[in-house]
Design a binder for these strands. Structure first.
Lengths: 334, 334
DNA sequence: TTGAAAGCGCTAACAG
DNA sequence: CTGTTAGCGCTTTCAA
């Protein structure tokens, strides 16, 4: 089956290829009669515009790529939706790619999208990737780092103020009268975890009287919460914290489950605050108080920033956009 | 900044563009000395191959697209990973796109990928999309429907035997001695729900003595489970089912939470079996027995089938691949 | 092993 | 409003 091109359409409609192209790109400049004929020819022939030819001629694509480490993380999905919405308004499409947090896959997608000549990149990555993006930017493809503040001034980024988040959570626990607070999270080498802990520390210090115990963990899963819960339940009651702030909601959910089934009342004996405000948080056994990052705004903001970077030729007005999280108070802390 | 092309590389390396292209595509046909010079020139100039030119000349791309309704559904992620893995082995890349289950977005991505000349499409959709894919196939882009069996013989698809899944779940409940079984799910217009119910019906009928109550619901969320749980708890104990099979794990989790907090013992008074085996199932208050579809195999199988379709020019040996689910037994039913 | 050159499909500038 | 045409960057004959 010979692929049908603009030429066949032109012949069929009895016009020139230029007119067909005009019809496709500037419909207003074509007479109604010919437009009709062209439209019919396209229909009959099943013509599909060839993007390669178009892009080659135009010199640029109309696509943006979003590379993320974990597609099945709801955070990713929410951000992607906001990005697609805003991109569509600007006449751009978004392609998604899944790096699984592996350096090798990140690199190969980065190279792939560069070769495809995408207009820009949205990149979420826990790994230090600033150097790589810098070299890609020098070759003409701009990018926005999504999810953490770039360590380099020149690299635009969209992030959340995790220090503030940690502070909000911990201050709330202090406000409801708790004084022996535990932070569960780790590894500290993860920037987000370190920031949340730092915020917690600030709130505790400011209170003057509260204390902060750090329970360092390797993972941040529901099962991690189970383990920590068992550990706390095994202590004599007086040695237990009266409030726990966890680095994410999964830990908090596991923790609450184990505490309750060990006969420890939540929030009466131990109040709990999580982080991320995932969907499960509201539906857990005890509805979970959680720090909510405004993910819906992320995607849109990322595209806005990227467009600004493109328009300003790499020198946007505000290279780093930092969002403030807010606290959603539920049953686990009141 | 003038984009650097193969021509600049050729000049810098003191060779012809043909030789550079050879170096890129058939490195073995280039002398070591020139290869060295070309490689250095590419490095110095920061040359990035332009896919548009390449694809235009080649006449086809080296990319596959996967369009799914919900990126943040773990099912999607798992399938995508398998697909990417298998595609990579075949020298292909996978682009993801997010239709949100909206017909309009589906169509626009379908058109976009067609214009991009992808080698093939993986499409997951709850909507009837067979006609659309048929017309796209006629225009030269093959596809595999992922997640449900195509209603048309000619449309290749990868799916799960949900009737068998429903049967496994219900037979298990009968095997552990339950006889008043309830199915919670809906709307029945969703094929997967209807199939699971049908399987349940088969198991019940075969038992001769068990009964099946159908509790029809509009949504399939944790909160749906909460509502159904409250409804069951409000009944006099004798009127309650002694086992519940739910259309998915979310309903089951919500149901279990509400039953337990209403003082009804799970599984002693009411056993529960869910469907999908989501990560949360194993970590719920009561670990949940669930039907596990082999999603890991899905992605690979979808690509295999797609490659077969491409190679066989639209006439694969086996157009519909149907996977058998298995039952994972946990605390909620023993 | 290397170089020269044609041409993939399309858009836009230009001429009419 | 419409037609003609150059050329985007690349790969691959074909000839040397």
């Amino acid at each position: 089956m010979p692929r049908v091109g603009i030429r066949e359409v032109a012949v069929r409609a009895g016009v020139s290829v230029g007119t067909v192209s005009h019809f496709l790109n500037h419909p207003d400049r074509v007479s109604a009669e010919k437009a009709e004929r062209i439209s019919a020819a396209i229909e009959q022939l099943g013509y599909v515009r060839n993007n390669a030819g178009r892009q080659l001629r135009l010199g640029h694509s109309t696509t943006i790529a979003y590379i993320a480490p974990d597609v099945s993380n709801p955070f990713f999905g929410t951000v992607a939706e906001g990005a697609e919405e805003r991109a569509a308004e600007a006449g751009l499409s978004v392609f998604l790619a899944n790096s699984r947090g592996e350096r090798e896959r990140e690199d190969s997608y980065l190279a792939l999208f560069q070769e495809h000549g995408v207009r820009g990149l949205l990149v979420a990555s826990a790994l230090p990737i600033e150097d790589r993006l810098e070299s890609i930017r020098r070759r003409g493809t701009p990018s926005v780092l999504v999810g953490r503040k770039a360590s380099v001034q020149r690299q635009p980024s969209i992030s959340i103020d995790d220090v503030l988040g940690g502070e909000l959570a911990t201050q709330h626990l202090i406000n409801i009268g708790r004084g022996r607070i535990a932070f569960v999270g780790g590894p500290i080498s993860v920037q987000q975890v370190a920031d949340r802990l730092q915020g917690a520390g600030q709130a505790v210090r400011r209170s003057g009287s509260a204390t902060l115990e750090v329970i360092d963990v390797e993972t941040r899963l529901i099962s991690t919460g189970h383990e920590v819960g068992a550990m706390i339940a095994a202590r004599p009651p007086a040695a237990r914290p009266d409030a726990v702030f966890t680095a994410n909601d999964l830990i908090a959910i596991g923790l609450a489950q184990t505490l309750i089934s060990s006969g420890i009342a939540v929030p009466d004996e131990i109040a709990i605050v999580g982080y991320d405000n995932i969907e499960y948080a509201a539906n857990a056994v005890v509805p979970l108080t959680s720090v909510r990052p405004p993910h819906e705004d992320f995607g849109r903001a990322a595209i806005d920033l990227l467009l600004d970077v493109i328009d300003s030729d790499g020198d946007p007005k505000e290279a780093h956009r930092i969002f403030a999280p807010e606290l959603v108070i539920r049953g686990s802390s009141r």
